[in-house]
Write a protein that binds this DNA or RNA. Structure first.
Lengths: 94, 94
DNA sequence: TAGATATTTAGAAAACTATCTAAACATAGA
DNA sequence: TCTATGTTTAGATAGTTTTCTAAATATCTA
């Protein structure tokens, strides 16, 4: 939910790779897991963290659960970085 | 040095607050520490992590050590987020 | 409803991180 | 060179995170 949760979610390389995979299109939990040298429950854990941070959404289609990017939070984060690059005036953080 | 180090550095709220403080201008380690309810060695530790991630630079002026933002890494991070918002084509991560 | 497949939840172990206190190091000025 | 001030380093501890295996839940098909 919070800004902080999103930053922490993105701090992990496995989760960033998941996000990158989802840029190419929606994927099931199993398809995502197949890209990693890691057990499925571990990947499921990472997906849960991304979901809690609102960076991804999930939907069930029969037996499968599809994951997709939610770009609205990325826009907020983008803004945070932009403000640093612009070196503008003081701003409040969370 | 790496992208990953920068993401991990930014994942901590204390460190994000330090970065925000530095947007208003360069500050000494002591001035930075005065903004936190935390012992100086702890703040020094956070500064070290920000420095290793190349998000800040430091310079000594006599007894004081001044910290300042290094916006070049912010630009790289900005780009990473931008690519998600744009939903462009596949890209490589680190 | 039974069996197969997809995914998550639970609980535990190992690794990592943030914080503290005490001590060390660096500089300035008497 | 001695002392005061500013800052970091070292080492310990508590809390958090990542990963694993085993078990549970959900859906589909026969």
């Amino acid at each position: 939910m919070s800004f902080n949760e999103a930053f922490k979610a993105i701090a992990d390389p496995t989760r960033r790779k998941i996000l990158s995979l989802l840029r190419t299109g929606d994927l099931t939990a199993g398809e995502i897991a197949s890209h990693f040298d890691m057990q499925k429950p571990s990947v499921s854990h990472h997906l849960k963290i991304l979901k809690q941070a609102d960076l991804v959404q999930d939907r069930r289609e029969g037996q499968h659960i599809y994951y997709s990017l939610n770009t609205t939070v990325f826009q907020d984060l983008l803004r945070w970085f932009y403000d640093f690059v612009e070196k503008g005036e003081k701003h409040g953080e969370e």
